[in-house]
Design a protein around this nucleic acid. Structure first.
Length: 851
DNA sequence: CAGTGAGCGAGCTTCCGCTTGACTT
């Protein structure tokens, strides 16, 4: 039995550290936080210094049980959680939960998992820093108050559709996307003309090559560009100046979480979640250091190992030891940068994605310890005899590649259009040049770029919002909430002008021609677009909670947290200063804020003159023609992507009311296309076939509809692997592999068994097995607290509602007649009432209620 | 499961940051 118990956060670290410390230590992990605020709304006592209640979440009970057992039998407990605010808090929670004496428990920290660092840490234990713990509690409490006070306001004031939420971090992320989209919408595209020239020239070996040059100035009008070209007819072009300047390029620092996500997105096309999953695998396999970090630090051991590796592989000239300083103010630097654990391992990972990501990490880390690349940049000025402007040719030669030896191929596929940096042929001052042609090409100013997942993370990090462990979850939250969608855009063709002047020695010399060409513009891949809901929620928050969704809110409150951590402020006072004014805003908003629907008047319907309005309805974006006060009922139509409330025109809106419509015949039966609750569909032979997302149902033709019907039929046929007892028991191909479907029950098939050869008996066995594993809990419907009577296992209930007693049955609510006593009404009477309503039709009951 | 769009009802949701598995159809 070991005397020392050392607790870290991550299991993978525990293993490594146990190897380093040897037999005197048992090293285990607590797997992150072991306590949290309960889900209930009263987790923080706002009337009593904001004292939080903590609970051990269900999924942490097992961990706590095990840690308690180990702590009891240990003479010394060492808390080696990460050295940051959260880590300090985890240590404190461990003390509280395990019943440890804070004064006697040894708190140690290290920033890297290396032998010297850990041995040094063990020699320098301290006690828990309660100020830092308090700073974490303040952070936790602010986040809870902001999230749980504002989210319910959205439910009341905007919609119940989906689950809306707001928070210190996610709401700013949405705001960035919404505001960027508006910048793009408001961007006025303007064009200008760029002059480029090609000269014929001999290179060192006497071969004819082209020298490319351009005019640094641009023209905003075609006529000015034309004038410039015309003036160049018959001009003499002479090299007036050659300027050679040395230059250097330095490598980028090794990866942090956010730079890894950016680079993997650009170079490998990974989503941020994908990058993190793959990195996690590499980390668990011991191939890389911890992947959730904001630090660019490299341990001494690592730098030495890289120096050795670089020297051996490329020679000492290529090695330059560097220590990087982390840029971000908000960095807590509890870990190292992301790097390979062993630099002599060139390939690692089981899958191709793992291998690719490992290579990226390896190269970036290695390059960070390599020499600068030495370059020579040449700028050549070319005079024009007929006018004062000068053309410029630029060249670049790599004199010494340095780190580019490793990074050059990565630099090639960078997303930004690299200016062509070419080697220039030999040139000398005074030399005249033969013009091949000169072009004036129309170019367009570009609107700000839309965010992709990784660039949004980069922006959040710059604002100090979110942490490495939350970047990927933030991105998925704002998509899950329906505020933001990740989409591709095909782009469209845009005409542009090219004026061409041919040189004096060409086939049609000194001729100026003008053509209109076309180019693709607006192509987007995996970019983030705000939804209508995202815009409405954002505008609501900006209107009522500007100080919370302000880009500086986090930065400012972080300053207060730092003061708490340094013992300069009391955490509950900081919370109080924030909470009282905030809560007033909350109350005021609840009382006074209008419902927000993003309503936009599109115009009038030509035939009737009725108003056509785009707004957010109960079930999402919609168009309404006519108002509720009208004689005849208003008509409605859903607005589906790619159409949005924000951009839809009156014409597009009116089109939507042409659905449903007949579009042809298949197998002798009519096909109808329409939009239903679950999106656009084709209806054929009483069966619905969903159309793919983002298809415009108005544009679907007979052939496409047939293709969709046939594809669905085929998919259904492929889904069934085996079928028994007339389909009562089936073996199906599901999202998560083959499974057995028996009525409503789904049963897993163990990997050791082949689903194609399973017999009916095998199926019954497997079903019986899973049944014994989890005894049926009974399917009784939940009985609410306000129930007066319950019939038929809860499927029919008499409830006491805000507007009197009613029957709840099959998801329908039926108000009881005034003469009925809710406490003594019988099941039979209930059934009669239910039957009366469903046969009588809803609409008649409405009318009678009004009259 | 398929054209809903005030007519209510109870009870549910929700935050951010640490960390892994368990689980889904």
């Amino acid at each position: 039995m070991s005397k020392n118990l050392l607790i870290v956060e991550s299991p993978a670290k525990a293993k490594t550290i146990e190897n380093i410390l040897g037999k005197d230590f048992t090293v285990v992990s607590c797997k992150g936080h072991i306590r949290d605020l309960p889900k209930e709304d009263n987790a923080i006592d706002v009337n009593n210094n904001f004292i939080p209640t903590y609970i051990i979440p269900d999924d942490k009970k097992q961990v706590v049980k095990e840690l308690t057992r180990l702590a009891k039998s240990a003479s010394d407990v060492w808390l080696a959680t990460d050295e940051d605010r959260e880590g300090e808090a985890i240590s404190w929670h461990l003390c509280e939960v395990l019943g440890l004496d804070e004064k006697k428990t040894k708190r140690i920290v290290f920033h890297e998992i290396t032998k010297p660092a850990i041995l040094k840490a063990v020699q320098n234990p301290r006690i828990i820093n309660r100020n830092v713990v308090d700073a974490q509690q303040a952070r936790r409490v602010v986040d809870r108050l902001v999230g749980f006070k504002i989210s319910p306001i959205l439910w009341r004031k905007i919609a119940r559709q989906g689950v809306l939420s707001a928070g210190r971090v996610q709401s700013v992320a949405v705001r960035l996307v919404v505001e960027r989209e508006r910048e793009i919408e408001q961007f006025k595209v303007s064009s200008y003309y760029k002059i480029t020239a090609q000269f014929k020239i001999k290179d060192a070996s006497g071969k004819q090559v082209l020298l490319k040059a351009e005019l640094p100035e641009t023209f905003s009008q075609e006529k000015d560009a034309r004038q410039f070209l015309e003036k160049c007819i018959g001009a003499v072009f002479t090299i007036e100046k050659i300027e050679v300047k040395p230059a250097k390029k330095s490598p980028a620092p090794p990866f942090t979480t956010s730079t890894l996500q950016q680079d993997a997105s650009r170079k490998l096309g990974f989503s941020v979640a994908q990058t993190m999953q793959i990195a996690q695998k590499l980390y668990e396999a011991g191939k890389i250091t911890y992947m959730r970090t904001d630090s660019t630090n490299l341990s001494d051991t690592a730098r030495q190992a890289m120096g050795k590796q670089i020297t051996e592989e490329y020679g000492p000239k290529y090695w330059q030891e560097r220590q990087y300083k982390t840029k971000s103010d908000s960095a807590q630097e509890a870990h190292e940068a992301i790097r390979p654990t062993y630099f002599d391992v060139r390939n690692a990972g089981d899958t191709t994605d793992e291998k690719k990501l490992y290579e990226l990490i390896w190269k970036r880390a290695m390059a960070s310890q390599m020499s600068d690349a030495q370059l020579e940049r040449t700028i050549v000025d070319i005079g024009i005899s007929t006018q004062p402007e000068k053309l410029q040719a630029k060249g670049e030669v790599i004199k010494f590649d340095g780190f580019l030896k490793l990074y050059i191929e990565s630099a090639l596929d960078d997303e930004e259009e690299n200016e062509e940096e070419t080697i220039l042929p030999p040139l000398k001052v005074g030399q005249t040049l033969d013009l091949k042609q000169m072009l004036a090409t129309e170019r367009f100013k570009r609107p700000p770029a839309r965010y992709n997942e990784a660039s949004l993370v980069r922006n959040l990090e710059e604002l100090g919002i979110g942490r490495p462990s939350t970047y990927a979850p933030i991105i998925s939250t704002i998509q899950q909430r329906g505020y933001v969608v990740k989409e591709n855009r095909e782009g469209e063709l845009r005409p542009f002008r090219i004026l061409t002047l041919t040189g004096p020695a060409e086939s049609k010399p000194n001729t100026l021609t003008a053509i209109t060409d076309k180019e693709k513009t607006g192509v987007e891949k995996a970019k983030l677009f705000p939804t209508d809901m995202g815009r409405v929620v954002n505008d609501f928050l900006v209107k009522h909670f500007e100080n919370i969704v302000n880009y500086d809110f986090t930065a400012n409150i972080e300053k207060s947290f730092d003061e708490i951590a340094h013992g300069k402020k009391q955490w509950n006072k900081v919370i109080g200063e924030f909470y009282y004014p905030f809560n007033e805003t909350v109350e005021h908003t609840l009382k006074t804020a209008e419902r927000e629907t993003g309503e936009r008047m599109l115009g009038e319907e030509p035939q009737t003159g009725k108003p056509v309005v785009a707004r957010l309805g109960k079930f999402g974006p919609m168009i309404q023609i006519g108002s509720a006060e009208d004689e005849d009922k208003p008509r409605f139509a859903s607005v589906l992507p790619p159409l949005t409330l924000n951009s839809i025109t009156l014409e597009q809106a009116l089109e939507l009311f042409k659905l449903p419509k007949e579009i042809g015949v298949y197998e002798g039966k009519n096909m109808k296309v329409g939009v239903g609750r679950f999106g656009p569909y084709v209806l054929h032979n009483n069966k619905f076939y969903s159309l793919p997302k983002n298809t415009d149902p108005l544009l679907i033709n007979q052939e496409e509809a047939i293709a969709i019907i046939e594809a669905k039929k085929e998919a259904e046929a492929n889904k069934i692997i085996q079928s028994f007892e007339n389909g009562a028991i089936q073996i199906l191909n599901g999202k998560f592999g083959p499974y057995i479907k028996a009525g409503t029950q789904n049963v897993k098939i163990p990997k050791s068994k082949d689903p194609k050869t399973l017999t009916l008996q095998d199926c019954h066995d497997l079903i019986a097995e899973t049944e014994t594993k989890q005894p049926a809990t009974g399917k009784q419907a939940k009985v609410p607290a306000n129930a007066l009577q319950v019939f038929e296992n809860g499927s029919i209930q008499i409830l006491d509602g805000r507007y009197g007693p009613y029957i709840k049955a099959n998801g329908k609510n039926i108000t009881l007649p005034k003469n009925a006593d809710p406490k003594t009404i019988t099941l039979e009477e209930c059934k009669q009432l239910i039957a009366a309503v469903s046969s009588g039709g809803k609409k008649t009951s409405k009318k009678t209620a009004k009259s």
